[in-house]
Design a protein around this nucleic acid. Structure first.
Length: 427
RNA sequence: GUGGAUGUAGCUCAAUUGGCAGAGCACCGCACUGUGGAUGCGGUGGUUGCGGGUUCAAGUCCCGUCAUCCACCCCA
């Protein structure tokens, strides 16, 4: 036997059980997106390297992207995120589009990282964006969508939360502390690490950035101030809109949320499991300068992205995994012996023509084996077409759940079986 | 990219100071030639991740390599 070829590191095989979860998530994403009037779109999986240069986080572009040269000598990148593509698409048709745009997408992305729990090199993301509206209500709509999604997949407010902050507010506060704007990006990094570093290490890091003790104390006070949002008119309106839309339990202000990507300009949001045992479930925010950065006129935009990996792990850990539909077909047609092949296939065909989902057993195995197979694939009704039934123009039907068995006239079998599946047993 | 842990049957795991590679589950068969799940009995299944070294003898010790996991980094 030849050696088994290993899958590419960091990729995931989706066996039917895993695929069922992915499809279920996709369906939930579609449901929530459409409930808020968003349209599905997609971009190419390959983009020019230049699209990401200086627009995404430096780490993502320089270290984590799959970059290669194609046969024509172009530097091509497997997309590590969707937002630059979205900005490019908007910029390309800027005058033809009706704003605000409400767009969503679900597809694969690639990042060359060290695989760990909740982090793969190939993963799927739901992206949803509202483009052309700079109001706090637009930010709140995205946060509401995020909260609705968490709710719809089964998470309770005690299990997962959407945490929100505003970079503009933080920037104003940092300026009030006398922190120069040149340090803004690195100070955001410092805030991001507040929970991750020990107090001493954090102080030391801050000092190295050039901050004095008063400024560090000021930042600490900021990050600990749960009422800070009240200073921002934008966040006041944001939380008002959140409350009205009934998702206040899920959405909370969190001054330490700042996000790593450079292109965020205002509201930023992340979702976490409240126990803090997993990576962030999703992240996003307002990026008003990005369309301009890829060559379009300035357009305000806000959006977020959800990866499929962490949320799948979390669903499983909290017992919210969807019941997977093992049986694509509730009807199982056995094959009595090789002489009945044409009759059995015809029976299955008739039932399918009547709109039923039917699996045909194709090899003349012993009936016990066929029943076991039917049971394993999760069929509800097993049909037997043997010499007796053919003689009498009937078909025997057994309900695997209850054990009931009836003999039905062949001509009306589809009619009775439909009713049987709906819970009404034939007399 | 840095540091650490672990790789034994399809799965979960055993195997004393180096001394015949095992169990449960799963799978297959029989009891039961027109009826699944339950029970009993039997059976298949392994180059111990891969490569090298030490040794009379390696799953066990040493080196390398690959993979997985964990903590950093970053992030979905």
């Amino acid at each position: 036997m030849p050696e088994l070829i290993q899958p590419v590191r960091g990729t995931q095989d989706y066996y039917p059980e895993e695929m069922a979860v992915r499809s279920w998530l996709y369906a939930k994403m579609r449901e929530v997106s459409e409930a808020f009037g968003y349209q599905e779109y997609d971009g190419p999986f390959l983009e020019r390297f230049d699209l990401y240069a200086a627009k995404s986080g430096a780490e993502i572009v320089e270290k984590q992207s799959y970059v290669f040269e194609d046969r024509g000598g172009e530097r091509i990148t497997l997309r590590p995120e969707l937002t630059p593509t979205l900005a490019r698409m908007v910029a390309a048709r800027q005058r033809q589009l009706n704003y605000p745009l409400r767009w969503w997408s679900f597809g694969p992305f690639w990042r060359y990282e060290k695989p760990q729990k909740g982090r793969t090199r190939e993963f799927f993301q739901w992206n949803i964006d509202l483009i052309g509206d700079d109001s706090p209500e637009a930010d709140a709509e995205l946060a509401t969508i995020a909260a609705t999604f968490l709710k719809n997949v089964g998470f309770k407010p005690t299990e997962t939360q959407v945490l929100v902050n505003n970079r503009a507010l933080m920037q104003t506060e940092l300026e009030a502390l006398g922190i120069p704007s040149a340090l803004r990006s690195s100070v955001f990094g410092l805030i991001d690490r507040k929970d991750k570093l020990s107090s001493d290490a954090w102080q030391k890091y801050g000092t190295e950035l050039g901050l004095d003790a008063t400024q560090l104390m000021g930042i600490e006070a900021l990050v600990g101030n749960q009422d800070l949002w009240k200073k921002s008119e934008s966040l006041q309106r944001f939380f008002e809109a959140i409350a009205v839309q009934g998702v206040g339990e899920y959405v909370h202000f969190a001054p330490h949320i700042i996000r790593g990507l450079d292109y965020y300009t205002g509201t930023v949001l992340e979702a976490w499991d409240t126990a803090g045992e997993f990576r962030s479930i999703f992240g996003g925010g307002r990026y008003d300068d990005l369309v301009n950065a890829v060559g379009g006129d300035p357009v305000p935009a806000v959006g977020f992205a959800v990866g499929n990996v962490v949320i799948s792990l979390l669903l499983e850990a909290l017992g919210h995994s969807p019941a997977i539909n093992k049986a694509p077909a509730p009807i199982y047609v056995t094959l009595f012996d090789k002489h009945q092949v044409p009759d059995s296939l015809q029976l299955a065909t008739e039932l399918r023509a009547a709109g039923l989902k039917v699996t045909s057993h194709l090899s003349p195995d012993k009936l016990p084996k066929q029943f076991r197979q039917a049971d394993r694939v999760g069929a509800r009704l097993v049909l037997i077409l043997g010499p007796e039934e053919i003689q009498n123009k009937t078909v025997s039907v057994k309900d695997l759940g209850s054990g009931d068995q009836r003999v039905l006239p062949r001509a009306e079998a589809a009619y009775y079986i439909k009713h049987w599946l709906e819970g009404k047993k034939p007399a």
